[in-house]
């Protein structure tokens, strides 16, 4: 019960000693932990929780950060990605936050991580048993774009009335000849709760189904936590005559040659030239280390984006 004295007394600079382990006070952690357990007990159901203001803005991963803060311990190895990459600025910022407030080891290696926090992607390397995937969620309610009122959507989930969602998908088919959702594609959890998988591309949806890892979803601003336990059925909505399908590319990754990963398009100039590279930066780097070469292998983007390098390229970019 002696929580106020739970202040770090180590050799950290003084300004960092004012905060408790993993930033949140113990009462807040307990509240989040209770919400996580109920979320795991009712897969896909959105548990309301007393989300707190974090030192990062709402919309920038506060739900994921609060989940991580409630579960992380000094024995964890933490990986944080944004758009699949470890070196995007917001991922760097969040990773640095936990390295500071939770004395935790960090990694870019998906296989070595015990907690993987992510915005918009699931890593290409299959998740393993014992890993926890924490996804940042801007809008937890899959029905929100169809019905703005929380009182209505909560009732729809309570009585399993998902007709509106199917109608909307069907309208897509009439308009475009196929289901138009490309990211944040709605899924059904254990055939009961309709759930937003967060804005991951639908390419990643199959990775959720029967995953051996614990999947936690946190929406800080909307104050909701939900979860999918390991080995749980996650079905992407579709119709018999319009089955669910994922994205495919005609190109391979220009750097590592992968033809199975999600690709980002990189604009090379204003003449319409572009290249495609793996969105999962660690997956791509690992393949290159193992000798896989793409058609543009050796391009400056393939250089390891450590800080000094990123900074150098940045300066070059400015000089040009």
């Amino acid at each position: 019960m002696n929580e106020i004295s739970e202040i770090k007394i180590d050799n950290k600079p003084p300004q960092e000693r004012y905060y408790t382990y993993a930033y949140l006070d113990e009462q807040t952690k307990r509240m989040i932990r209770r919400a996580i357990l109920k979320a795991l007990s009712i897969p896909g159901y959105q548990v309301p929780f007393g989300s707190r203001e974090m030192p990062l803005p709402y919309g920038w991963g506060t739900g994921g950060i609060q989940l991580t803060a409630a579960i992380i311990g000094p024995n964890d190895v933490y990986k944080c990605i944004d758009q699949g990459a470890d070196d995007t600025t917001n991922a760097v910022s969040i990773r640095r936050f936990f390295a500071t407030v939770a004395d935790v080891a960090t990694t870019e290696d998906t296989a070595k991580a015990t907690i993987i926090q992510s915005r918009h992607r699931i890593p290409e390397r299959p998740l393993q048993s014992g890993q926890i995937m924490v996804l940042q969620v801007p809008q937890p309610e899959p029905l929100r774009s169809l019905e703005p009122r929380e009182t209505e959507t909560r009732a729809m989930h309570a009585y399993e009335e998902y007709g509106l969602q199917y109608v909307s998908l069907y309208e897509n088919i009439s308009a475009y000849g196929r289901i138009a959702a490309t990211a944040g594609y709605p899924v059904m959890i254990d055939e009961r709760y309709l759930m937003s998988p967060s804005p991951i591309p639908k390419f990643d949806n199959p990775k959720l189904d029967m995953s051996p890892a614990i999947l936690l979803f946190g929406a800080g601003r909307e104050k909701r936590i939900y979860a999918v336990p390991p080995y749980t059925k996650v079905r992407s909505l579709d119709f018999e005559d319009y089955p669910f399908e994922t994205q495919t590319w005609d190109e391979v990754c220009a750097l590592c040659g992968s033809d199975t990963s999600y690709l980002d398009e990189v604009v090379l100039d204003d003449q319409g030239n572009h290249m495609f590279v793996c969105s999962d930066s660690h997956f791509c780097a690992e393949r290159r280390e193992n000798g896989h070469l793409g058609p543009l292998a050796g391009h400056s983007l393939a250089q390891k984006s450590d800080d000094s390098n990123a900074n150098r390229v940045l300066q070059e970019g400015i000089a040009k």
Partner: peptide, 17 residues
């Protein structure tokens, strides 16, 4: 409290998951 409740929670969470 902070360290022990964290490690206990992980055991409880694993059990629930």
């Amino acid at each position: 409290p902070a360290r022990q409740s964290q490690s206990c929670f992980r055991l409880i969470m694993d059990a629930t998951a």
